[in-house]
Design a protein around this nucleic acid. Sequence first.
DNA 1: TCTTGACTTGGACGAAGTCCATCGTAGGAT
DNA 2: ATCCTACGATGGACTTCGTCCAAGTCAAGA
Lengths: 136, 136
Amino acid sequence: MSDLLDRLRGRGWRLTSQRRVVAQVLDGDHVHLTADEVHLRAAARLPEISRATVYNTLGELVALGEVLEVSTVGRAKRYDPNARRPHQHLVCSGCGTVRDVHPAGDALGDLPEAERFGFAVGSVEITYRGLCPACA
Amino acid sequence: MSDLLDRLRGRGWRLTSQRRVVAQVLDGDHVHLTADEVHLRAAARLPEISRATVYNTLGELVALGEVLEVSTVGRAKRYDPNARRPHQHLVCSGCGTVRDVHPAGDALGDLPEAERFGFAVGSVEITYRGLCPACA
DNA sequence: TCTTGACTTGGACGAAGTCCATCGTAGGAT
DNA sequence: ATCCTACGATGGACTTCGTCCAAGTCAAGA
């Protein structure tokens, strides 16, 4: 965790108490929180932190590549602090729960040259959708 | 197109002029429209159509599997009328252009049983990201 | 043609997220 | 140790995207 704070300081970040708290919340456990949940947990430690600051900080962490945005259909974005090990996501269509998964194939390689339309393809994002045991 | 209307009638849909117009708009050209764009185009043919009806109709078409929701990063959902042939999307990180692509692998099969956490996995959504020739 | 319940309407409502003017403070300068 | 100041925080208004609802309308079967 202090690793993260160190990296941020190394990039010229001012270490405000707000940013420290947001970083701590994200590092706390490996869940996929919405911005609102991050705000809730951050406010437990620093009651006066504002929503705008949480949004700003999350946006900056995403821009720095320290945190990933998980695109969800029709729900609030979720933030994934596990940006360092590549993985994909399994999303419950019922409750929105997100789990990290590690499929076997090579999706990038599976896209034939003829299908790339001259694009410089850099990444693949795979989302598996289904119902979790509780929602089934 | 009348194929689509036939299928919908076969499923017990009442064929209202509003539903007809939305179906026509979606069938018109193979683009990836937002709900608002669908409403705009539908209103060109049937000026008094309401936003609520467009949302309802799109939701029903998605539920019936006639249209796909494309998850976009942080913007409005897009609706893809090309639901009959399975395909994935190639998105330009520069300008946002979306192209349909057809990768070779079997992404669903690539997710090991041990990685499914008891979920009933039903679909995979793959998004390739990169820069199109114009943006590169 | 009549009837009826499915469909549509528009406006209020709500959730998620952005913007902005103003205030506060981290951290370098002295 | 204190001062300065630009960067960051604040909170409330605003925007965007979408849902809900009560009341009115109409497609299609009897």
